[in-house]
Nucleic acid binder design. Structure first.
Lengths: 142, 142
DNA sequence: CACAAAAATGATAATGGATATCAATTTAAA
DNA sequence: TTTAAATTGATATCCATTATCATTTTTGTG
């Protein structure tokens, strides 16, 4: 919580931008969400705290959070733009139920290893990866 | 080429829809593309063959192709809707250069194996998966 | 503390991709 | 051939996101 605000502050300082109450509120509400957040949900929760904040500022600020590495675009929900936390999150992949759209996050160390192999084979320098497995969860199988 | 048209035809028959010249043209142009196609590119190439086909028909037909399993939404390019072939394609994952956006398709048998393990752990029935590795390709490293 | 310059904000207009509408055309089947 | 249903293309509409702009806020300087 503390760290993230410091990261945003120093990013803004370096870019000659300003740390404003609106930006703080938006960051805090974003951090309070687990997993993947759509802009709409984010906006609703932000307005509970400060109804004067406009949707344009939310979009602008979320783009800043992506730039400074605190958030990234989540590619799970196609219709709307959505985000997930990046900093202080252990890397995880996604198991997605195709029926109820439940999302489970998981880690598998060997997948991390094989992606290195693959990069080597094709001469790529590894950056990051995304893996999504689609299936039907226990609840929906009943 | 032949198979795909038969699949579309029988899907349309079952749904009491009709196989039209426009739908045939759109399917053929779609199949002639390798990898991931944006609607815009698809539309341009369709118009070279039949300039009277409208953009609405392209969207409508692509949705039919997704419904009958010949295509699926590609999640690589976020801005525009884009598609990739599903039928007669061996399953592959993607290696993406974050600099030039080049896409290399690869397969790794062990990844197929570990996703089964993961599904078992969480009680999911496996459906399919998607994996994307991001890095910098040889050309861009120079 | 006051003041000027730069940046941020909120309201709203503009944009652009995707979908809905509708009159005209085409198709299938009787 | 005739009729009902589906399809088409043109275009209006929708809606998420971005751009614009007048106003407000912030920062830093004297």
């Amino acid at each position: 919580m503390f760290d993230e605000i410091e990261i945003l502050k120093s990013f803004l300082r370096e870019s000659k931008l300003r740390f404003t109450p609106q930006r703080q509120t938006i960051l805090e509400v974003f951090l309070s969400h687990e997993g993947h957040v759509e802009v709409e949900d984010l906006f609703l929760n932000i307005q509970k705290i400060d109804p004067s904040i406009g949707i344009a500022t939310v979009y602008r600020t979320m783009n800043l959070l992506v730039e400074c590495g605190l958030a990234r675009d989540s590619v799970l929900l196609k219709g709307q733009q959505s985000f997930e936390k990046l900093y202080h999150q252990s890397h995880h992949d996604h198991l997605i139920c195709t029926q109820c759209e439940k999302i489970v996050e998981f880690e598998h160390p060997l997948i991390e290893k094989y992606q290195l192999e693959i990069c080597h084979t094709y001469g790529f320098t590894l950056n990051h990866h995304k893996m999504e497995i689609y299936g039907i969860c226990l609840d929906c199988q009943k």
